[in-house]
Amino acid sequence: MALVKVFSGSEILAQSLKVRIEAAGVNVIVKNNIQSSNMAGFGSLGQAVEVFIEDKDKEKAAQAIEDFKMGN
C-alpha cells in the first residue's frame, strides 16, 4: 500500500477535500499534525494537515482533486 500526498494545508480545506474524494469512492487518510502537536504540549504552525490516498486510486480521485483546486 503506497500512499500519495494530495494536499497539505489547513484543517478546514483538508476536510473539504476529504469529503469530495470519499464521494468519489476513494478511502482517504488525514494526518493532522496540529492536533498531534497540541496533545504533546507543543504548538504547530503552517501547513500541518495532510491528505493521503493510495497510489492505485489516483485516477479515481483525480476529478475530485482537480475540482477542489479549481474551487468548484
Rank of each mutant, 00 (worst) to 15 (best):
M70H: 06
A24V: 08
S37N: 15
I21L: 10
D55Y: 13
K18H: 02
L13G: 12
L45K: 08
M39D: 08
S16N: 03
F7L: 13
N33E: 12
A61H: 01
G71V: 03
Q63S: 11
Q47H: 06
N27C: 10
I21Q: 00
E11P: 10
G43V: 07
I34A: 11
A48W: 00
K18A: 13
K18G: 04
R20N: 06
S8T: 12
L3P: 01
V26H: 02
Q47I: 05
L13N: 08
G46Y: 00
R20W: 03
R20S: 11
E50H: 15
S36N: 07
A64E: 01
E66F: 11
E22M: 15
G43H: 08
F42W: 10
I34E: 01
E54Y: 08
A24C: 11
G46C: 09
I34N: 02
A64P: 02
I34Y: 04
I12L: 09
K60Y: 02
Q35C: 07
S10K: 04
K31A: 13
E54N: 12
K31V: 15
V28F: 14
Q63Y: 11
K31L: 13
I34T: 10
Q15C: 05
I34P: 00
L3I: 12
S44K: 08
S36R: 11
I29Y: 10
F7K: 02
Q35N: 15
S8C: 13
Q15I: 13
A48M: 03
N72I: 05
Q47M: 13
K5V: 08
G25V: 09
I34Q: 03
A61D: 00
D57N: 14
V26M: 11
L45D: 02
A14K: 02
G9P: 05
V49S: 05
A24R: 03
G25L: 08
V49K: 00
K69E: 04
L3G: 04
F52H: 15
I29Q: 14
S16Y: 07
A61P: 02
K56S: 14
M39V: 06
A24E: 00
G9I: 02
A2F: 14
A61V: 09
A2K: 14
K18T: 12
V28W: 01
G71N: 04
K60W: 04
I29F: 15
N33S: 09
G43K: 08
N38S: 08
E22T: 15
L45W: 14
N33V: 10
S10P: 03
F42S: 07
A64H: 03
A14N: 01
K5G: 12
D57Y: 11
F42D: 05
N38Q: 12
L3A: 05
D57Q: 11
I65P: 08
V19Q: 10
N32M: 08
R20T: 00
G41Y: 04
Q47Y: 07
S16T: 07
A61T: 02
A61M: 04
S10N: 08
F42P: 03
S37C: 09
A64Q: 01
K69Q: 10
R20F: 11
V30W: 06
I21C: 11
I12P: 04
S8L: 05
V51C: 05
L3Q: 14
K18Y: 01
A48G: 15
I21N: 01
S36Y: 03
S10E: 07
E11Q: 05
L17V: 05
